[in-house]
Design a protein around this nucleic acid. Sequence first.
DNA 1: CGTGTGATTGACGTTCTTCAACATAGGTGG
DNA 2: CCACCTATGTTGAAGAACGTCAATCACACG
Lengths: 267, 267
Amino acid sequence: MVMPQAALQNVTPPAIGFVSVFASAGLAPSCSTCYLRGTCLPSGSPAEQVIQISTLTRTKLRLRRGAALYRRGDAFKSLYAIRSGSFKSVGLGRAEHTKVVGLHLPADLVGLEAISSRIHEYDAVALEDSEVCVVPYDDLVRMTLNVPELQAYLLAALSREIVRDDGLVLHLGAMTAEQRVTKFLLGLSARYERLGYTGTRFDVRMTRKDIASYLGLTLETVTRVFTRLQRDGLIEAQFKELRLTNVNGLHGLLAAAKTRSNMSPAA
Amino acid sequence: MVMPQAALQNVTPPAIGFVSVFASAGLAPSCSTCYLRGTCLPSGSPAEQVIQISTLTRTKLRLRRGAALYRRGDAFKSLYAIRSGSFKSVGLGRAEHTKVVGLHLPADLVGLEAISSRIHEYDAVALEDSEVCVVPYDDLVRMTLNVPELQAYLLAALSREIVRDDGLVLHLGAMTAEQRVTKFLLGLSARYERLGYTGTRFDVRMTRKDIASYLGLTLETVTRVFTRLQRDGLIEAQFKELRLTNVNGLHGLLAAAKTRSNMSPAA
DNA sequence: CGTGTGATTGACGTTCTTCAACATAGGTGG
DNA sequence: CCACCTATGTTGAAGAACGTCAATCACACG
C-alpha cells in the first residue's frame, strides 16, 4: 500500500488514501507522447505550445480504487486530466445523503465545478486504479493569456460540461427506469468508442448502487432492468462485464412511444 | 406589435417573433449606470475597464412574452445578459418532446451551453416582456486577453452554471414531488433576494406545465403540491402570485426524514 | 475457509402518472 | 362592455411504475 509522499511542488495535497505522487523526471510521459494527445488539452498543432502545456502537467498522481482525488470542501488548486482509469463525482444531497452526479473517463477534465467557489463541491473517487495529470489552475489560466487556443479549449470544456449536465437533467426527469439505464449504457458505449475502444463490450466500473444513485433509481430497479434487457437479448451482463448485443434495439427503446409525458410535444 | 428591424451591426439576428433591437445612442444605459452593475459582468473596479466592457454590450434587445432570444440549432454568436424579465431554456428530449432545463432571471448570462459546439442547444423563450444586453462572444473572448478579471469572471460564470446543473441533477433524482417544488420555490426566493427583492412575495412566471417539466413531474402533481402547501399554511398561491408564509416550514420539508432513499447515508 | 460486499429475485405498498371533468383567467371581436 | 374562446389551472378516481422490505445467492478478499 503506497502512502502519499508529503507535498511536492505546488501539488494539491490532501488526496487521502492510496495515492502515489510522482513528477515527470523522464519517467512520466509528456503530453506530446501521451496516447490521449489532443483530447484532454489542445496539444494539436504548434509543437512549441505542446511543450509549454507539458510543463503544466509535470505532476501525475496514481490512485488506488476507492481513493479520493479530492473531497468535498477541499480547497481548489488544480484541475485533473484523467490518463487512465475512471472516477465518480459524489455530491451531498439533503439530510446527509450522498448522490453520484458524474462519471469520468480517460481524457476527461475533472474539478471544473470548483472554479467559481474555489472549493470542491464533490468527492472525486477512483472507481479503479487510475492515473491523472495535475493541472495547476492558476498556471493554466495564466498560460491561456498567451495561448488563445488553450483559452478557447478551456471555455469549450466548461461549456461541454454544461451540455452534459443539462442532458442529464433532461433525461432524469423525463424517462422511465428502462430508458434511463439504456441511455446510460449507450452513453458509456459512445464514450468508449470515442476513446478508441469497442463500444459494444466494456466493463461497467460503477456498482449497481452507484448507477442507481447516478440515475435517480434504486439498485433493485437497476438490477431488474438489467435482467429484463438481458432476457430480451439486448445486452449480456454479468456483474461488471457488459456486452451490447443489439445496439439498434437499445436505441429503439429510447425513441419508443413509451416516453412518459411530463414532456410536451414539440411545436 | 414591434417587428425585428433587420440586422444591426453584428447582432445575432434570428430572434423571431416580437423582438425590438436598439443600440445605445445615449438611450440605452451603459454598464456603469446599470442597476445590475457588477452582477452580470465584472464592472467592479477600474472605471476604464467598465467603459471597455460597456463597448461590448452596445446592443440591447427587447422581447415580448413568448418571443425567442434564440432557437435550437441557431448559430451561436453572442451571450446575453438579462437586464429585466426572465427566460426559460427549452430542450428537446427523445421522440419530439420538449423539456424545460433552465430558468433565467436578471443578471444571468444566457447561452453558455453553446460555446463548445457554436450552435445553440435550446430555445430561450421570454416568460414576460424582457430586455437583454447582447455580448458578442468573440469580442468578449478577445477582451479577456487584456482584462484578466473578465477572463476569471467568465470562467467562474461557466463553473457556476455547472454547479447549478449538478444541483438540479442531485435533486431531481432523489426528492419527492413535494420536495422538488419546495426546493424550486426556495431557490427562486433566494435568487430574488440576491437581486434585492423581497424573496417572500414574488410572481412565478412559469406556467404549472413549465414548472412540472422543469422538475420532472406532471402539471397535476405540481398543482396538488401547491394546494397541499397552501392547506398547510406554508405558502399562499393564486396563479402566478406567490407568498412564502412560512419559510422555516418549507426548509423543514427538505431536511425531513422523508428523503427517498436511492441516496446513501454519508460516510 | 469464512466473512462481507455486491447482486438478484419476490411480494407488497406508496407515490406519482394517467385520464377525465370542470373551473377560472385573459384576450378578442362583436 | 359583454360574450365567447382558448389557455391555464384545479380536483377526483383508477392504475402503473417504482420504492421498500426481506430473503437468498455469488463472488472477492483476507
